[in-house]
Amino acid sequence: MKDKKGLNNRANKIYDARFIANFIVDQNPNKVSNLMLQKILYYVKIYFLVKCDRNIFSNSMEKWEYGPVIPDVYHEFNNYGSEPINAPQSLFVDEKDYTKGDRKVFGFYLHNYTKTDIEEDDQRPIEDISKGILSRFREDPFGLVRETHSDDPWKNVSEQISKGAMHLQYTDKELKDYYSSPENRKKFKDITGFEI
């Protein structure tokens, strides 16, 4: 099916990151904390930027004290604190993310997660990256923080972050450029177990 620009919707779908977060939680119940979820989403984004030449989600990703964070996802799951997230969350979505069966509440729609929120072709790499990261870092989630802190896109603004700078955003270009080098492709594989 073609969209208004003539692009194949299936191959170019851009999601709300909260839908991808729900998918990751659903595949790994009681295994992923909000901190780990943020880092998994970081590597998912990098995979799709470098390997597929596309952005997988529309939400902004910021450079926080503990590395990359998608504020929309963080706030959706922050009630878990540092504990593992046990189930996908119902989400308030606007009309563009509405699906049949969602209830309208105060001008928004309450969306209950289903696995079909993520296209089948996109599910496999998300699952593989999640499982690779969890197999290596489940017992040491701050190892993921150290890994993301060693990346130039975060490292280059670390002094600003330590002085309290906020809303510093990752750009697709800086992530794609950084992870396109052979050295950083290897680093990606060492962290996720998955090649880009």
Rank of each mutant, 00 (worst) to 15 (best):
E127P: 11
Y170M: 01
Y80K: 03
T192S: 05
S90D: 11
G132V: 02
L134H: 04
Y80H: 04
V44W: 05
Y80D: 05
D3H: 07
K4T: 15
V93L: 03
Y98C: 04
S181H: 07
V44T: 07
S158H: 11
E65L: 07
E65A: 08
M61D: 00
N34G: 08
V44L: 02
A87Q: 14
I161L: 05
H111L: 04
M36T: 06
S135W: 11
Y80C: 03
K63N: 00
F108W: 10
R54T: 02
I40T: 02
T148W: 00
K176N: 11
S33N: 06
P125C: 12
S181T: 15
E95T: 14
V25M: 07
N112K: 11
C52M: 11
F92G: 07
K39V: 01
N28Y: 05
T114A: 12
N59Y: 01
E95S: 15
K4M: 15
N112P: 07
T116V: 09
Y74P: 00
D102E: 07
K104Y: 08
N8Y: 10
L91T: 01
A21K: 05
K4F: 13
P182F: 06
Y113Q: 05
F23A: 11
I56F: 03
E95H: 14
Y15N: 11
S158C: 15
R10T: 11
P153M: 04
N34P: 08
P141N: 02
P71M: 00
I191C: 06
V32K: 02
D177R: 13
N59M: 02
S162L: 05
N59R: 02
K31P: 08
P71V: 00
L7Y: 14
N78T: 01
R103W: 10
R103C: 15
D102L: 04
R185S: 14
E120N: 09
N55L: 10
S60C: 08
N28T: 01
E83C: 13
A11V: 09
Y98S: 06
E83G: 13
Y170W: 01
R136T: 07
L37R: 04
R124N: 14
G6D: 10
E159S: 15
